[in-house]
Simulated scan of single mutants.
Amino acid sequence: MSGYLGTYKGERYHIPDFYRDRQPTGPREVFNQAHSSLRNVIERTFGVWKKKWKILETMPNFSFNKQVKIIIATMALQNYITRYAQCHCHFDESKNHQDEETHKEMDANEESHETNGPGAQEIELLRNQITTGLMGD
């Protein structure tokens, strides 16, 4: 499927908005809260991965094929460590040190991802199905 599974516009989105105020009201805010929560986990995971594997910082110096191999190798090693380590210290440390700067940066870089091209109806249908599933209907 081609497209971007974006949030519902005009509804609260960022996790701190839900902590400061009330819980989500309505299906669209429930979806946006779940989307934001998942995005935070993904951002944190990539941050931990890049922090742990310093070679990822110098990737532009390598050919594309070598970059692909490095990414696959570090992902495989990271997955192995995550699966078999007693403690995933880097991830736990990252989780404990989340700060407002992350949210400010995300706000500053937030782009509008309108889906108007091919697949737009399918994306909208998928988002609505996910929303319905989150509501427990």
Rank of each mutant, 00 (worst) to 15 (best):
N32R: 06
L134N: 05
K69A: 14
Q86P: 00
S36A: 14
G26I: 05
F64E: 03
S63E: 13
R12Y: 09
R83Y: 05
K9R: 15
Q121F: 14
Q129A: 14
I70R: 05
Y19R: 07
Q98Y: 00
K50D: 01
H103I: 06
T58E: 10
G3C: 06
C89N: 06
Q86C: 06
E105C: 05
S36C: 08
L125M: 02
Y8D: 08
H90I: 02
K104E: 00
N79R: 02
R28C: 09
N40T: 09
F46V: 11
D21L: 12
T25W: 07
N116S: 13
L126F: 13
K95W: 04
Q33Y: 08
S37D: 10
V48P: 08
D107H: 11
Q78C: 07
E114A: 15
Y4L: 02
I81D: 12
E29V: 01
D107K: 12
R28Y: 12
E110D: 13
G3Q: 03
R28Q: 13
N65H: 15
S36Y: 03
I81R: 03
L56M: 07
K104M: 01
E124T: 03
T74E: 01
G6A: 14
L125R: 15
R44H: 04
M75H: 03
N128W: 00
E110G: 13
M59T: 14
G10K: 07
E93W: 09
G136W: 03
S94T: 04
M1E: 10
W53T: 04
S94D: 02
N96K: 12
C89I: 01
H35T: 01
F18D: 09
S2C: 09
W53I: 06
Q121S: 09
K51I: 02
S2N: 05
D137N: 13
D137V: 12
F91E: 02
W49P: 01
G119Q: 08
P118N: 09
I130V: 13
Q98H: 09
E11Q: 10
R12S: 06
I42K: 02
G3R: 10
T7N: 14
E114K: 14
K95N: 03
D107P: 00
L38F: 03
P60H: 06
N61R: 14
I81M: 05
R127Y: 09
T115D: 15
N65S: 04
H88C: 14
H35E: 09
D99A: 00
I70T: 08
M1T: 12
I42E: 06
T102M: 07
W53G: 02
H35S: 13
I15Y: 00
D92V: 06
H113Y: 04
Y4Q: 08
K66R: 15
G133H: 15
Q33G: 02
T7P: 03
E93I: 01
A34D: 05
E43G: 09
Q33K: 15
G119W: 01
N79P: 00
E122T: 06
T131G: 04
R20E: 15
L126G: 10
T131W: 09
R127T: 15
C89M: 03
T25C: 13
S63V: 03
G10S: 10
